[in-house]
Amino acid sequence: MKSIKTFAAVIALSVVSFGSFAQTVTATGATIDSAEAKIAAQAQQAGTSYRIIEANSNNGVHMTAQLIK
């Protein structure tokens, strides 16, 4: 039983630790390229790479990305 509690604690701490590295940023622009350029600039300023997780184009582009260390 003690090993199950220890395993659960390790899993919980791993999830918390992983979540602290991920940061979400957003940008808007007239085109997909302009919104992505803003995301790229934010990632470069933070010294990270990025992964686009959402883009919406209704009368402009709104983009969300996750910064990855």
Rank of each mutant, 00 (worst) to 15 (best):
I11P: 00
I11F: 05
V61S: 02
Q23R: 15
S17I: 13
S14N: 12
N59M: 07
H62A: 12
Q23M: 12
A55L: 11
H62F: 11
Q23C: 06
A30S: 14
I4T: 08
A35H: 00
R51S: 09
V15E: 07
I39S: 00
Q23V: 13
I68M: 06
N59S: 13
A9R: 10
A35K: 00
K38Q: 11
Q66E: 14
S57Q: 14
G47P: 03
S3M: 13
D33S: 14
L13T: 08
M63K: 00
G29P: 01
H62K: 10
G47N: 07
K69P: 14
A22H: 11
Q45D: 13
T31V: 05
Q45N: 09
A40E: 07
N58F: 10
A43L: 05
I39M: 01
S49L: 07
S14H: 04
V15Y: 07
I68Y: 00
T64S: 09
T28M: 07
Q23I: 10
A35G: 03
I39N: 01
I11S: 05
S34M: 08
Y50M: 00
V10A: 11
Q23W: 06
K38D: 08
N58V: 15
S57W: 04
A46M: 07
A55H: 06
S17M: 15
A41P: 02
K38P: 01
G19M: 08
F18S: 14
V61T: 01
K69E: 06
I53G: 04
N59Q: 09
Q66S: 04
V61L: 02
K5M: 12
F7A: 15
